[in-house]
Computed example of a mutant assay.
Amino acid sequence: MRMYIVDAFTNTPFSGNPAGVVLLDAPADEDWMQSVAAELKHSETAFVEANAPEPHPLRWFTPTTEVDLCGHATLATAHVLGDSRTFETRSGMLTCTATGDGWVEMDFPADPGDPVDADPTLVDALGGVTIEHVERGVSDLLVVAVNAAQVRAVRPKATLAELPARGVIVTAPSDVDGVDFISRCFYPDAGVDEDPVTGSAHCTLAPYWARRLGKRELTGRQVSERGGTVRMTLSGDRVSLTGQAVTIARGELCV
């Protein structure tokens, strides 16, 4: 079966977030998909039944576990398949629309957070971050730092994995022209110490920054080592995430 490696949320090779994309001819065994994802070692690998009628069944696996929602691997899948596609996933129907010039718009459920107190484990794990605010979404903890420099400098401790959440998003107002906010995302409990660019995290980032900045259309920059840009439009309980992608490799999976 065909397999691809795609850098998502970028138009530059070897930046953004790399994802594996496997085109299935039929439903696959869950343990087998997990083994493939562990072999590829990307933060997520997408498995899509490409020949099935739309909505195409789509699942995502980290090297250690299946996840309910993954933005960059969905973008990578839509990029590989081309045109506009609808996928059936554990988070419901996801529609991807090609908008021209290599951009793909994805319609995702928004995941607004509720304010929570900063857990002592969280404060200790994030070290030098001065925490202004913490929210809890369905998936992640959103931590607002006092400035962009602290987001760029943070080096979380291993104890971050002990928190009762999929992962931790650290964000602050932007220090980049044309960008509303910056962020970094950490998922050690899912086998991903730092995710280069995280589409699903922007389902929580968008509601927070839309409320704080008073605007529905936003641009975020994830300032990991590889880096990537996500455009967002918040509309009720949905958020559109728009990004570009680059195919790095095409091959044949032999097992």
Rank of each mutant, 00 (worst) to 15 (best):
T99W: 00
G92A: 09
V146P: 00
M93L: 15
E54P: 01
P109A: 14
T89Y: 01
E44P: 09
L122E: 11
G71C: 08
G137Q: 05
K41V: 05
A38M: 09
S43H: 00
A153C: 01
T130Y: 00
G100S: 02
D107N: 15
L142A: 06
A125L: 08
V67R: 02
H56I: 05
P55W: 02
D111V: 01
A76V: 02
G113H: 08
G137Y: 00
L94A: 12
T86G: 12
G82V: 11
E44H: 07
G92R: 06
F108Y: 13
G128L: 05
L40K: 05
T65Q: 12
T130F: 00
L75T: 08
F47Q: 06
D119P: 03
C96S: 14
I131N: 05
N51G: 15
D140R: 05
T74I: 12
T97M: 09
V48S: 03
A76F: 09
L126K: 10
T65A: 15
T45L: 09
V36G: 10
V134S: 09
T65H: 09
D111Y: 00
D107P: 08
D111R: 07
L126H: 06
L58F: 06
V36C: 14
S84K: 08
P57H: 10
V123W: 01
V123I: 15
W103S: 12
I131V: 15
E49N: 13
L122K: 07
H56K: 15
L69H: 04
A145Q: 02
D68K: 11
Q150I: 03
T64H: 02
W103T: 10
M93F: 01
E132T: 11
V144P: 10
R85C: 12
T62A: 02
E54H: 04
Q150W: 00
D101E: 15
D114C: 03
S139D: 12
G102C: 14
V146G: 01
T65P: 00
H79I: 07
T65E: 13
S139H: 08
D117H: 10
L142I: 06
A125K: 03
A76Y: 04
T62N: 05
L142Y: 04
S43F: 00
D107I: 12
T64R: 11
F87C: 11
P53V: 06
R85E: 14
F47R: 03
R85K: 15
P55D: 05
H133W: 05
V80I: 10
A148V: 01
C96P: 10
G137E: 01
H42A: 08
T95Q: 11
S91C: 13
A38K: 12
M93I: 15
E88T: 10
L81D: 09
H42P: 03
L81V: 09
D124C: 03
A46Q: 07
P53A: 15
T62M: 04
V36E: 05
E49T: 13
S91H: 04
E132M: 13
R90V: 09
E135C: 04
